[in-house]
Design a protein around this nucleic acid. Structure first.
Lengths: 256, 256
DNA sequence: CGCGATTTGTGCACGTCTTCACAAGCGCCT
DNA sequence: AGGCGCTTGTGAAGACGTGCACAAATCGCG
């Protein structure tokens, strides 16, 4: 048996060694497992099989086992995984054993909603500051926090160590905000603005674009529609599209 | 040999019978290209090279060319891509030539913000209905739309053909809402609730979980922190470490 | 009209992710 | 104690995605 053991549960600070080098795809799924595990724990389960957990998390069971095997060997053959232990392990690996401070920049439509979203607090994050560039918004109180001006960022960063910056500004302002976040030492950014950010090496950016998700769904709708529209007669079924624009055809830029 | 030709294949100009079978990864990037192209068009560019467009979209230029090649051949060697033509093509493939109606269920914190998000309208979507299960919310007007009760869904679907359902309810209500959406014929769902939905085959579900994004960032923060805490011998020595022993002290606060 | 500069489209090699299938390990029951 | 059923952990194979590097194609110019 392998000796992958990654102590993190026992109360020994200082014994934190090599964080396993997890595949990105695995990292992206761990939070999902964690949520499912919390549900199971609340429901009173003490152990769970890979089959059960994978069903709760909506993934293939073999994939789940392989993912968990990257963390070390925390299952018991013939029995399954200890729910509490696994929660502890995943939370450790994800760095959730310390509550991380998040700075939220942009208190517009979306930012306002994010400020009030309780899913952050319940999963190990704390909104440490709300910031906005609009002076008329500064001073407003949202969910017990007062909005400060974005230029106060250095002061905020001095007060407490910011782990993550969330950008919920219009696209035009996003790059500047990102620069300001980086300037005060933030190395992880969650960007809701529909634009690409350029940041120095070592800074992680994740992007969430609501409209993009819809467009991806739209593609699949379009595809499904075009499939069901042509039963067996290949060809003329494109009429499913109103506007009859189909024949944009492939002129292929051949000489004009 | 391979008659697996996509519509833009050489020679054959004509109707487009089937949508090219795009790789998922490509589909996910097309909206990004589209946004960049609109920016370029607004800036007055008529053509753009793969290098230029890929920079604007934040991807590798070879990847972009390969993605676009799946749509057919719409570039001109030595010149680049015609911006307007490419916009047209991508919008066609994504099914954005018809404005799709979106039903938004759950007008709480997040749903409220989504209802006011103008990024939907500007990218080809129209919020056709706001729905909520809470009777005290029904009747409220948001952004020119009146909130209706979720049980009115069949009536809403009868009024106009809903393409996409957006779920912004608490997790506990999400599955039931999904069932209702499916019942009225919705085959694409964007789920903001932190839970897995089970839907019949043929229904697409995409999930957006804000807390998960933060947790992924948290992992990278954790990892970066544990790396910088190591001796200054550089990162290369780290990778040479065989798994198994703890190196030095890490001040990562664990436990509690 | 041909040549060089430029840029697309793609074959190929490589790395990552997924999935299957099964041996190894564990607990329970007799 | 031993056997049996169940479940994990993992090797191997295949699918998928990425990026290089270059031939093919096009334009502009002398």
């Amino acid at each position: 048996m392998s000796q992958h053991r990654h102590p993190g549960a026992p109360g020994r600070a200082g014994a934190v060694p090599t964080l396993p080098d997890l595949p990105e795809a695995t990292v992206a799924r761990l939070p999902e497992y964690l949520r499912a595990l919390h549900n199971l724990a609340d429901a009173g389960h003490e152990t769970v099989s890979s089959e059960g957990l994978s069903a709760a998390a909506g993934v293939n069971s073999a994939k789940l086992r392989k993912d968990l095997s990257h963390l070390g060997s925390y299952g018991t053959r013939g029995v399954g995984y200890d729910v509490a232990l696994l929660i502890e392990q995943i939370e450790y690996v994800l760095g959730l054993t310390q509550r991380r401070a998040v700075a939220l920049v942009g208190v517009g439509n979306l930012g306002h909603a994010l400020a009030g979203y309780d899913g952050f607090a319940s999963r190990g994050f704390r909104i440490a500051a709300l910031l906005d560039a609009d002076p008329s918004r500064v001073g407003e109180e949202i969910n017990g926090l007062v909005v400060r001006h974005v230029d106060d960022l250095p002061a905020v960063a001095a007060e407490e160590s910011l782990a993550i910056g969330v950008i919920a500004t219009p696209a035009a302002a996003a790059q500047q905000v990102a620069d300001q976040l980086v300037a005060v030492g933030v190395t992880s950014i969650l960007n809701f603005a529909p634009c690409v950010l350029s940041v120095p090496e070592g800074v992680d950016v994740r992007k969430v674009d609501l409209a993009i998700e819809l467009q991806i769904l739209s593609f699949h709708e379009h595809r499904k529609a075009s499939l069901t529209a042509l039963p067996a007669t290949g060809g003329s079924a494109l009429t499913a599209l109103p506007g009859g624009f189909a024949a944009t055809d492939t002129q292929e830029a051949i000489g004009t």
